[in-house]
Design a protein around this nucleic acid. Sequence first.
DNA 1: TAGGCTAAGTTCGAATGTCAAACTCAGAAT
DNA 2: ATTCTGAGTTTGACATTCGAACTTAGCCTA
Lengths: 159, 159
Amino acid sequence: MSNSESLQMNRKSPVPVDQCGAALATEIISDRWSMLILREAFYRVGRFDDIQSEIGIPRSVLTDRLKKLVSNGILTREPYREAGSRTRTAYLLSQKGRELGLVLLALMQWGDRHLRDGETGLSVTHKETGQALVVGLVPASEPKIGFDEVTLTPTSSAP
Amino acid sequence: MSNSESLQMNRKSPVPVDQCGAALATEIISDRWSMLILREAFYRVGRFDDIQSEIGIPRSVLTDRLKKLVSNGILTREPYREAGSRTRTAYLLSQKGRELGLVLLALMQWGDRHLRDGETGLSVTHKETGQALVVGLVPASEPKIGFDEVTLTPTSSAP
DNA sequence: TAGGCTAAGTTCGAATGTCAAACTCAGAAT
DNA sequence: ATTCTGAGTTTGACATTCGAACTTAGCCTA
């Protein structure tokens, strides 16, 4: 059934590994947990115990990953206080971290399509126009739609 | 300097981890090596020894990751023969694998911006219009630009 | 002011995974 | 018949991950 579709092979890539942003990025965020921690951060789940129990990461590993993400400027560690309760620690996305949103969304889009049989868990809507949005290739000249111009709506079952 | 920008915290995410495509996807591709292997696959570097020496992965680990990627339908393992030489084995992207291209590009875009001081290693051009393309949010209603409508050009130094 | 409760980590030994280097093995090429 | 090559295996040292229990500081309440 499958015959040789793609005959031409290359012996090396045109862009050396150490000059590729993707390759450098994997060193920071491509382990079993970092992306999941960032997922929580995007949803503003920023407390140690909450992150830990949602994704099921060992506490010692979470400590380590948070340190790594903070030291890479992706998260910040900040004290915060809710109305009339004690001061706590929160891990928040920095601007640099926020810009990983596209990666996370692209991953979600792929995962929903190929691993969940097309079921989307979250829909992204343009506030201004009400249009549904997806991650795709866009002319660099067009105005970028930022995450602050967008509404996220969980699609299916309750939290 | 940094005061509490974002006061409202959530105790849990609106989309449970096991219903999130991104979370499922990380189980397959979020280890130190899989994304790098896919990077090679996108550049059609498909031979065992070539992948191994480009990214520096231990051979035993490469064996394991290739099996995993094949069993998840992201790569296919196929015999191929170049003009007048012996039959070899090549690892090629499946359609499912090809659709990870957006994730890889989004990661590259982020990495180039934040880890390489804005130096881009690769530029993406729309064949039809000649326009430079980036990964971004697009209305779902607009026609998608596929990877077959696009030219990839290494930006800087030779392979 | 003592005692409890939380949140945010540490510590620890066992299980698992990664590493580099050397080895295997089948099919061409000499 | 021997060498070469591509695609893996094997191995034993080293590193990371796991989960369960422990620590520590600050508040809260009595």
